[in-house]
Design a protein around this nucleic acid. Structure first.
Lengths: 195, 195, 195, 195
DNA sequence: CATGAATGAGTATTCATTCAT
DNA sequence: CATGAATGAATACTCATTCAT
């Protein structure tokens, strides 16, 4: 058995804790979730959580950081900077859709904790950085005359808000969206923001 | 002094509690807000809250019910059922914008508590009823061929999600949107969903 | 209408409070009874209780004092000091039975609060005085050779304990004892303690 | 070190809580005793009580059940069903005396909570069962013509009431009764109820 | 005098965190 | 390393008491 296989075969406790906490934070919120509940669902002792995380706050920040990074990776890796705007929009949207379909809870988690008082400075900065990345993309596209003029913040609020709305609706009825509907949604939003 | 003035002159403690609680629930969440904090901000004793509400849950449900009704009044009163869809859309959007601009916190509050586990049956039913009202409007417009085909739920998620996105963005930067930007947003969303 | 009649016709609030409190203290105990509950049952405002009594403790002490005095009056007034012991015993027993039958709750109340921590010094002294009166009667009877020898305290515990046992049994089944049974009980206890 | 010794060496916290609570409930009553007081006297943290008992009510019911069972064991184990009534009476009385002398507080506790509103259904049933056992013994003895005729409930009230009176008197002066006095009391009560 | 709304200290209970095993 | 029993500070809620009307 290779070390790699071992790792996958014995999923380490840290991962189990992160997964359990993510689920519970989405279901019940941060303050509505007790640490021993997390331990129970993760199948570890309550004390064990404190071997891996300094505190409940550190735990939620770890989750936030990890998911945000993963999302950033998926959404922005090899961003087709030179492709036409229509192409860029479709790519972004579909990558986000892919991530959110595969990890609906992670997506909702990020939404819920966007502006939580217990997010640490590092996460606030991370959030800020990603916002800037997206803003740059929007501004460039506006400059090229491909998107409607107007406050970039407004355009982004609309697109991201709509995207979140669709995901939340999926989570509510516990049913993923069909591929065709994702495409329809993408089409709709493109028609919304294009010049 | 008229009775009406008298009423305004004696600031109602019940109202003060509702206002303070609404603010805090938005800032910190339900479980993140301590009852004495609410009392402090409302300028009343902690025990006083229990003269007006049976429990913290009853309080949050009272707020939800009151705001949802107010929103329903504003958005749906004298709905122009016979007007053209374009006109209907604009009316709805601008009414919602007016409500949300005047009560941004109330709007965020409703979003946050949409699916909270502590919402009582009455509020769940109320929520359901309002969803149906909106759905009917959408389906009618689709039938007339004025809106894009596709799951009504999807269209609504997009429009409402976008609207919420815009409001949240305003709350984040603590600055209301200009009237012109509201019109722009309306235009954008209309282009998104129109046939 | 004479002043006396007026008093009986409009039973004053003080009396109503005392009655309500007596009942509730018996039903639920001192700490188990809330002052507003007393006010409700007495048909007065909560604040009114504090016009007549300094505090909840003062109220319970007032009740104790009043009932104990009434009981002392009934039991010891015109005590037949020169009658034969058998006669004295019967007289005492039947007077106590009469009092307890007419006021079962008052009797249970006194039992329950006999040694409560919140009894004030005056009531402790009153209790002490009445105990001495009874002890004197017992010691005299022992001296005359009419009662069994042994610690007077023991004899009194037995007789009073048995009496209380009978009363509590009546209260439990919410049914007063028949006259014949009272006589039987008296006969039994006399046979218990007579020389 | 044997397992048994180990058990005694590690003083059980559950036991400490039960003991402390029993004492305090006798001293101050159920509602007059604060949970942290119990914790203090037991030498544990306040939260610890809730690892062993669901609530303050569950705690008081646990104590009641345990003591009642212990008392039942002591009083009724190997009951000399075929012995003469005089012998049965002496046996019962002395067993009860032994129990009550060894555990005066436990005895008073049971008396105080006999009819408390917070006794659970199981304890009410237990109480009922034990009452029936005693009633059967009395009725049998009456049938044999060894006890006075009359309501069995009355005879039992008298004997148990007298017994409780004696115990309470001991607790009041914080001094156990001499063996001779127990015998005297037994003699007195026997003469009270015998045919 | 009488009231009952208002208060805040006090209650039962929970929960993040520690630490002996 | 892992545990979960133990802790005590913090929470929701109650209630004796006050005081403006």
């Amino acid at each position: 058995m290779s070390p790699n296989e071992a790792k996958r075969a014995v999923p380490d406790k840290r991962e189990a804790i992160l997964d359990a906490a993510l689920e519970l934070f989405v279901e019940r919120g941060f303050y509505g979730t007790a640490v021993p509940e997390i331990a129970d669902r993760a199948g570890v002792g309550a004390g064990t959580i404190y071997r891996y995380f300094d505190s409940k706050e550190a735990l939620v920040n770890s989750i936030y950081r990890a998911q945000k990074m993963r999302f950033g990776q998926v959404a922005l890796a090899d961003f087709p900077a030179t492709a036409p705007t229509r192409e860029q929009f479709r790519t972004m949207w579909m990558r986000m859709a892919k991530f959110a379909t595969a990890n609906p809870q992670a997506f909702v988690f990020m939404e819920l904790h966007h502006h939580a008082r217990y997010l640490d400075a590092e996460n606030v900065a991370l959030e800020q950085r990603m916002l800037e990345l997206f803003t740059n993309v929007v501004v460039s596209a506006q400059t090229r005359g491909d998107l409607k003029q107007g406050p970039p913040r407004l355009l982004m609020s609309i697109v991201m808000g709509a995207f979140v709305g669709v995901i939340r609706s999926c989570v509510e009825i516990a049913q993923p969206l069909e591929k065709a509907d994702w495409k329809l949604a993408e089409q709709i939003l493109w028609e919304a923001v294009r010049a």
